[in-house]
């Protein structure tokens, strides 16, 4: 497998990472996603990492890059499904996923994106960062 498939759902792009990524696969994903955001004019990117058993600084940087790059193209990124052990390890490692939102699962991630994009469409007010149902 050379590429991680990116699914398009309306205004959103959906990526499910099912295997531990080789570095090249991860960097490919980064560039592919940014291309897709540009091509489709997507407003949100949802990345499901529930199958990832580890996130090291390299993978963390890829996720952060995707978030920051999407942001300057006016799309929000939400990372969903992080395993508890991964979260604990990232904190200990001192790695914060800057530039991305997080949600428990795909469903809540979608909700979060809808709320954020929705509020953007109505008025440009900076609503609170956190989003709950």
């Amino acid at each position: 497998m050379d590429r991680i498939p990116i699914l398009r759902m309306g205004h959103f792009l959906l990526v499910t990472i099912q295997i531990d990524l080789y570095d090249r696969l991860a960097t490919n994903l980064e560039s592919d996603l940014v291309q897709m955001v540009n091509k489709t004019g997507a407003r949100g990117v949802l990345i499901d990492i529930s199958a990832l058993s580890i996130v090291d600084s390299f993978m963390g940087r890829i996720l952060g890059n995707i978030g920051s790059m999407s942001k300057i193209m006016d799309a929000e990124t939400v990372v969903v499904g992080m395993q508890p052990a991964v979260a604990i390890t990232l904190i200990e490692l001192g790695l914060e996923l800057k530039g991305v939102h997080t949600a428990l699962n795909v469903e809540r991630g979608m909700q979060l994106l809808k709320e954020r994009i929705g509020s953007d469409d109505e008025d440009e007010s900076e609503a609170d960062e956190d989003s709950f149902e």
Partner: peptide, 13 residues
């Protein structure tokens, strides 16, 4: 699992 993850992450770094 948590210690495994920490070890593997450290190894990866």
């Amino acid at each position: 699992v948590v210690n495994q993850t920490k070890l593997i992450t450290a190894a990866s770094e």
